[in-house]
Nucleic acid binder design. Structure first.
Lengths: 162, 162
DNA sequence: CTAACTGCAAATTCTTTGCATTAGT
DNA sequence: ACTAATGCAAAGAATTTGCAGTTAG
């Protein structure tokens, strides 16, 4: 159960110091939670997780840290359409492969999936090339997301129809 | 310049009455703005547009109407990542072909594009089929969106580097 | 030491809600 | 007339900001 926060993220240290930022307890703690959980977390999720061990870290620090980490490309900000942002370790900085999200509109559960990435990449490559040429738009990122009903919610709904 | 609000949306009348809802001035006005502009508008955009002619229509009505129209599949709610929702006439209820959005992260401009829809459909068809089978997830909608730098912002940025 | 960072509380912004009143049908 | 719909003002929720005190390097 014990973590080694101090030495956990040598990259973080490099990243931050390299840009003149300081490596603080709060920043390490926040990154550690994100790494350990390794799934999209809201600011509040992070607050809850950290609060036990670091009661003095407030939302201000969390939001400011997330903004910083996002700016540095270490975390990605996600939106699942429920009015609160989620954050996860950026693609490429985790062992997890590139993935996307299936968002259940009924129970708000989110399923990560890593399938069809090859097809997706093919489509993206073409689209990005074409859009860049046609609109002179330099694509930096994309969002591909599916919304619908997860198995449980779908079944529950089917039952109601009977 | 003159509009014929009253007879503008026979479909709306059918839709609403068919579900026991009433056809009110506010609802007609809001749908009319969305149809006339035919581009993603925020609640505030809509408020500004109709406020001149219908000063008594407030945000409450706008939000409630948009929610209703969305629930009925007449308008789509969009998210461009800037913390405020946009709304546009749903695909299929407008003459415009299926489209997606390029969002400039720097000036927040949004470009509609209708290219690569065939490739996209192919990819989506496969992905949806596969995801439905693998996760028993009933896909209802999807979001495909590109973020980046529009021509102007990109050039401005390049200049700074020199 | 000193600039970057933080917590706190207050402010902002978008959106939602309760309730008395108004207006479709 | 009977209810759905509305306006108003107030509440909510997520996020941001000003500022004075704290801490990393």
């Amino acid at each position: 159960m014990q973590k080694k926060h101090s030495k956990n993220h040598p990259e973080l240290h490099t990243f931050l110091r390299g840009h003149g930022y300081r490596v603080t307890t709060g920043r390490k703690a926040i990154l550690t939670v994100l790494s350990d959980i390794d799934i999209h977390l809201s600011a509040d999720d992070i607050y809850q997780k950290i609060h036990k061990r670091y009661p003095y870290i407030g939302f201000t620090t969390i939001y400011r840290t997330l903004e910083l980490l996002e700016r540095m490309g270490i975390v990605s900000k996600l939106d699942f359409g429920d009015g609160r942002a989620r954050y996860e370790i950026a693609d490429g900085l985790t062992k997890k492969p590139h993935h996307h999200h299936l968002v259940c509109l009924h129970c708000r559960r989110v399923i990560d999936y890593t399938d069809f990435i090859k097809e997706e990449l093919e489509f993206l490559k073409r689209a990005e090339k074409g859009l860049t040429e046609k609109y002179n738009f330099a694509i930096e990122s994309h969002v591909i997301q599916f919304y619908g009903a997860c198995e449980q919610c779908f079944q529950r709904n089917e039952k109601h129809k009977e």
